[in-house]
């Protein structure tokens, strides 16, 4: 097991930031760590990197305990902290050299590694600039280059795409996917699409507790997604009739003949709508399903229990 998190609990004062969190990642696996802001994602990651100690439980990286073998563990982890802190007054090259030397790289092998990382992270044109003059997307690449420099076997990325524009997000995702081939990667996010774009495995955390840890497809299935259907008939239909159909939760009228129909959780309202159309001799112009199942599952899983 590359990364084992066992019954992890962290207490800050009287507040439990995370409670009894456990999961394991196999070698080469890439997993999304999903949850709303303040759910405990960063805390878990900080513990995994040895930056803060757990109150209870333990984290093992390649079989080494992060508290007792902190220095060895740090050598095998690549970490991109939240908000990607960087020495903005350093040059890109200078910064990567400093980082590499902290990991004990030097001489020709350090130069070669830096050259490789600059190539991999798409920084050749920026390598001689000061970090403060780089855009957020390029800074993120520098942060990733820094995390990858010493060829770590476990990569921990805390919200690697926050604050980037859609093109930059796409680029960073591509980069993560590229480098993750022979590494164990865990990245946090509060966007479900991100997980979908990068990997199959998703670990959902809410209020400090793991609420789901499975393949994304299965989480979606179990989450009993709600369908939102946009239906259009050639003539107006009584809303009351639609509401009485099997599996329909609510109906709202956009225009005479055009309706937004929301299904009850876990049921498919399309078939009853077709039957209704035939039974009343109506002409169906369109029936379209909104792809919002990801959000609704996320909402369901991370609902704050009153």
């Amino acid at each position: 097991m590359s990364l084992e998190v066992v019954n992890l609990t962290k207490v800050y004062g009287a507040q439990k930031a995370i409670e009894d969190v456990s999961f394991t990642l196999r070698k080469g696996e890439i997993a999304g760590f999903l949850g709303p802001n303040g759910a405990g994602k960063s805390t878990t990651m900080k513990i995994a990197t040895g930056y803060v100690p757990p109150s209870q439980g333990q984290v093992r990286v390649n079989g080494m305990d992060v508290v007792r073998q902190r220095q060895q563990v740090k050598q095998t982890i690549g970490y991109l902290p939240e908000h990607n802190p960087l020495y903005t007054d350093m040059y890109v090259h200078e910064y990567l050299e400093f980082s590499g030397r902290l990991y004990g790289l030097k001489g020709a092998s350090l130069r070669q590694r830096i050259a490789e990382m600059i190539e991999l992270c798409g920084l050749p044109r920026e390598q001689n600039k000061k970090i403060e003059s780089l855009s957020k997307g390029y800074r993120q690449r520098v942060g990733l280059a820094q995390a990858l420099l010493h060829d770590p076997s476990v990569l921990i990325l805390d919200e690697p795409t926050t604050g980037l524009d859609p093109n930059q997000i796409f680029e960073i995702r591509k980069l993560i996917k590229e480098v993750s081939r022979n590494k164990t990667v865990i990245f946090s996010s509060h966007i479900m699409q991100e997980v979908q774009a990068l990997c199959d495995r998703v670990i959902v955390i809410n209020r400090g507790k793991i609420v789901a840890d499975d393949l994304l497809a299965r989480v979606l299935q179990r989450g009993q997604a709600v369908q939102t259907l946009l239906v259009e008939w050639a003539s107006a239909v009584a809303v009351k009739d639609l509401e009485s159909l099997n599996g329909v939760a609510s109906v709202s009228e956009n225009a005479p003949g055009a309706y937004v129909i929301v299904s009850q959780p876990g049921s498919d309202a399309r078939q009853p709508i077709m039957q209704f159309t035939q039974a009343h001799g109506l002409t169906l112009l369109s029936l379209r399903q909104e792809e919002n199942s990801l959000e609704s599952v996320f909402k369901q899983l991370t609902r704050v229990e009153a």
């Binding site: 040895g50 930056y51 220095q71 060895q72 740090k74 970490y79 902290p81 802190p85 902290l102 990991y103």
Partner: peptide
């Protein structure tokens, strides 16, 4: 950057 330094070996 403290976090960065302290997560280095």
């Amino acid at each position: 950057t403290m976090e960065l330094l302290l997560t280095k070996p």
